[in-house]
Design a protein around this nucleic acid. Sequence first.
DNA 1: AGTCTGACACCCG
DNA 2: ACGGGTGCCAGAC
Length: 116
Amino acid sequence: MERGFQERVLALVARIPQGRVMTYGQLALLAGTPGAARQAGQVLNGLLGHTPLPWHRVINAQGRVSTHKIGFGDVQEGLLRAEGVAFDDSGRCDLDALQWWPDDAPERTLPPAPLL
DNA sequence: AGTCTGACACCCG
DNA sequence: ACGGGTGCCAGAC
């Protein structure tokens, strides 16, 4: 049943707490495939509308939703707002404050610590 | 500081 | 075996 990458991404998405977010690149990283951010996006693209998973809690590294193309932009933003996520005028949210990392994340998949 | 562009990486059908 | 795709990053404007 294990499909590998896809299943791991979905498992991660399922764990994102309400009011928090993860990025595509982050999902790929934690799924064990750094650089496969676009594939993470493709995985999510498949389940829009027919999934119990909190797909709307996944945004891009710029802190903005990437679903406008597919017509789910407003929906996603609305769902996040309902959870307390604030978006500024340019449609961005504060990733530093809202991005969620699993507590059991291996150290090498942790966010780069500021060295200064 | 903000926005746009192009090269790049990579799983899945 | 091959190309697409909800991205990412670095560099230019």
